[in-house]
Amino acid sequence: MFGIGEYVLHQKTGHIGKVIGYGHEILNGVYTTTLKVLVDYAETSGKRGVVEEDLYSAWVKWIRF
Rank of each mutant, 00 (worst) to 15 (best):
H15W: 06
L55C: 03
V30D: 00
Y56H: 11
I20V: 15
L9G: 01
M1K: 06
M1T: 07
E52N: 06
T34L: 12
I4D: 10
A42V: 11
G5S: 05
V50R: 05
G5H: 09
E43H: 04
N28K: 09
G14K: 10
Y41P: 04
G14N: 11
T34K: 14
G14T: 14
E52S: 14
L35R: 10
G5Y: 03
G5M: 01
V8M: 00
Y22E: 08
E25N: 11
V30M: 01
V37L: 05
N28P: 02
V50H: 05
F65G: 02
G46S: 05
H24C: 03
F2N: 04
G46K: 11
W59I: 07
M1I: 09
K61G: 02
I16N: 08
E43Y: 03
G46V: 10
E52R: 12
K47Q: 13
V30K: 11
T44L: 14
T32L: 15
S45Q: 00
W62P: 00
I4F: 13
Y41I: 15
H24Y: 15
K12N: 03
G21R: 14
K12Y: 02
L9H: 14
L35Q: 09
V51S: 01
H15R: 13
R48K: 15
V51M: 05
I20L: 14
Y41Q: 14
V8T: 02
I63H: 06
Y31V: 05
H10W: 05
D54R: 13
G14Q: 09
D54A: 11
